[in-house]
Write a protein that binds this DNA or RNA. Structure first.
Lengths: 154, 154
DNA sequence: CCATATAGTCAAGCATGATTGACTATGCGC
DNA sequence: GCGCATAGTCAATCATGCTTGACTATATGG
């Protein structure tokens, strides 16, 4: 462990960060692949899934979405358009400013991708079964710490 | 919690899987951004970092790399070429089969991206400080369970 | 020794997801 | 009411990271 080269190599090839990246990539691929093999499901792409954590039933503006993801609103626009076409979200005029529209999940639309989401959940349950409820809780908590450490570019 | 719509929305917007994806994306962006702002550092892209977990000092064939990542060897080739140009890895003829070449880290090359890797490590330490050594150990373990659950497409 | 398989290379093309720039429509403040 | 800011749209372009297909060089088995 005192060899700095070995340490570097370990960092490059198997640090916790690398494990995190690897797990996420596998999860992403699997969730999308699962969705892709369901006949009627909309062709959701990674770019759409990035929007999900920022959507809810109360409504968000497209420009806010863009800002949160750190991209331009032009980049968001086609994605939102597709989600609307697929019936996953709907747009309503923002009562506070009629130029703007609020985007929000449509419950009946969400059920269209329910199986894909259910896959996420099933992997989650599988892992939970393997490691136990308590450890899973710790995991979620530490994940929160990672996000907190990374979220605002200090 | 009995409202299935709310459950779906929660799954779409904040399940553990989503948190995992989010943390990984943030980490990836930060590590690459850090590297990008170091003057002499090679312009490593996400595609290269995917190779790292599969590289070491003992040597791997490019085709094995491709197989592990689930892409064609043509996709791997330009990435490897760049890593070699940047001095991060070197190629030696495989003594077992002279058609093949083994790829392996070059210690002095690794130090060129040491600062980027060090950033990974520093975030890791920051998180560890925040949550404690024990919880970090649990985290790593659960991460392993996720990877195990996802690794071989069942 | 020759046929066939295998490791890696080269080239062209494509989907994705971003960018910049120009535009429309609406709202808000003086 | 007018002027300017703002929310969203449209169009063109670009980098990235793949793909398929054709090729070269080396190995191995009959």
């Amino acid at each position: 462990m005192s060899d700095p080269d070995a340490q570097l190599a370990a960092l490059a090839s198997a640090s916790t960060g690398q494990l995190l990246l690897r797990a996420a990539r596998l999860l992403d691929e699997r969730a999308l692949a699962r969705l892709a093999e369901i006949p009627g499901a909309p062709p959701v792409r990674p770019a759409h899934t990035r929007l999900f954590p920022h959507l809810d039933f109360s409504g968000v503006r497209a420009s806010v979405l863009a800002e949160r993801l750190g991209v331009t609103k032009q980049a968001i626009h086609p994605l939102v358009t597709e989600l609307v076409e697929w019936g996953l979200v709907e747009q309503v005029v923002d009562p506070a400013d009629r130029r703007a529209r609020l985007l929000r999940f449509r419950p009946d639309g969400l059920s269209a991708i329910a199986q894909g989401l259910a896959m996420l959940e099933s992997v989650e349950r599988e892992v939970e079964r393997a490691v136990g409820t308590e450890r899973m809780a710790v995991f979620r908590e530490v994940l929160g710490a990672w996000i907190a450490a990374l979220e605002p570019p200090p």
